[in-house]
Nucleic acid binder design. Structure first.
Lengths: 191, 191
DNA sequence: GTCTATAGGTGGATAGAC
DNA sequence: GTCTATCCACCTATAGAC
C-alpha cells in the first residue's frame, strides 16, 4: 500500500472513531507511519485528505448496500437482509456520524458525498419497496419514499441508541420493531 | 441570570451546535460574557461545566416528552403527538448528538445523563404502547419494547437525514413512514 | 468573584534541506 | 518523496493580583 493510501486509510479510521474536528493531521500521520512533509506532499491539507477518505468510505458503503438491494427475493426479504446484515454497530455509521460535524457540513465539498450517499440509500430503498408493491407483495397503501426514509432513519438512529447504551440491544430492538411493523403491510395474498 | 447560569446556557448552546470536542472554554466564556477566572471560579473545568449543561438539557428534554406521553388520548395519539411535536430539526438532537462525541462517551460521568435520557425515552414509550395494547387499541402481536426503540431511532435517525440533506423533508418522511406502519397495527375494533 | 498574566501542549500548515 | 525546523494561533488550565 502506498503512502498516500495509508494516509487515506488512517484518515478513514480516525474520521470514523473521532470525527473530523477530533482528528488532527498529526494523529493521521502517526497512524499512517508518515511524516508531516509526506502528508503535505500528497495532499493540500486536512480537508483534501478528508475528502479522499470520505469518498472512499461512501463508495464502499453503497457497494455493500447494493449487494442486498439487488439480491433475489421479495422486497421485504431484501430490506430485511439489508437491515440484518452484519455491522459494527458500536462503531457507528462512518457516513452518518459526519452529519454531526459542523465543520464537515459547512464545507460544500465535504458535505456532498455524505448527502449523496444517504439520499441514494433512501432512493434505492424506495425503489425496492415500490417494486414490491407493484408485484403485489406489499400493500398498495404503502408509501415507498416515506417508508424508505423510515428504514434508513431506524438504522442511523439505532447507531445512536447503541452508542448511548454501549450495547447492540437497542439497535437490534429498533430493527426488530420496524420489521415487525412492515410485516403487517405484506399483502394477504403472500401470507 | 447569574454568571454561572450564563456559562451553563452558553455551554448548552455550544454543545448543541458544535459538540464537546468542538467547544472550547474560550468560546464559552465569550458567549457568556465572562472571563477566564470567572469560569474557573464557578467550575473546575470544561468537563464540570459540560456536565451541568448536559444535565440541564436532559431534564428539559424529559419534561417536554412527558407532556406528550401523559396527555389524554389513545397510545397512537400520544406517540403521534410526540413525533409530530414542533422541533428544531435542522439543529439536531442536543442529547443524541453527544453520542457521537468520543470524549463524552469515554467519560462515565458525562455519558450517564445521555444514556439515561435515551433509555428513559424508550422505556416510557414502551409503557405507552403496552398500555395501548392492554386497552385493546393496538394489536396483541405488537412488541412494545421493540417498537418503542424503533420510534426513538426514527427520531434520532431523522435528525441525521435532515442534517445531511439540510432539509426537514427526510425527517418528516421518516416520521410519516413509521406512523403509517404503526397505523396498520391499530386493532380493527378501533377503526 | 473577576481580572490579567503566564504556561506547556496541540492544531494546521509552510519552508527548505536532502 | 520524505525529513526537520519553524510558525502562529488556539486549547486548557493555573497563579496571583484586585
Amino acid at each position: 500500500m502506498s503512502t498516500a493510501d495509508r494516509l487515506i486509510e488512517s484518515t478513514r479510521e480516525l474520521l470514523w472513531e473521532r470525527g473530523y474536528t477530533g482528528t488532527s493531521p498529526k494523529a493521521i500521520q502517526q497512524r499512517a507511519g508518515a511524516g508531516q512533509g509526506s502528508m503535505y506532499h500528497h495532499f493540500t491539507g486536512k480537508p483534501d485528505l478528508a475528502l479522499a477518505a470520505i469518498r472512499r468510505t461512501a463508495e464502499e458503503m453503497r457497494a455493500k448496500a447494493e449487494e442486498q438491494f439487488s439480491a433475489p427475493g421479495t422486497a421485504v426479504d431484501r430490506v430485511t437482509a439489508y437491515l440484518r446484515r452484519e455491522r459494527e454497530v458500536l462503531r457507528g455509521c462512518p457516513i452518518g456520524r459526519l452529519t454531526q460535524d459542523p465543520d464537515v457540513m459547512a464545507d460544500p465539498t465535504l458535505r456532498a458525498p455524505v448527502d449523496e450517499t444517504l439520499a441514494w440509500l433512501r432512493e434505492r430503498l424506495a425503489g425496492v419497496l415500490a417494486e414490491g408493491r407493484e408485484r403485489g407483495e406489499l400493500a398498495a397503501a404503502l408509501n415507498p419514499e416515506a417508508v424508505a426514509s423510515t428504514v434508513v432513519a431506524v438504522l442511523q438512529g439505532g447507531y445512536v441508541l447503541a452508542g448511548a447504551a454501549d450495547s447492540v440491544a437497542p439497535f437490534d430492538q429498533a430493527i426488530t420493531g420496524v420489521l415487525s411493523l412492515l410485516a403487517a403491510h405484506v399483502s394477504p395474498a403472500d401470507e
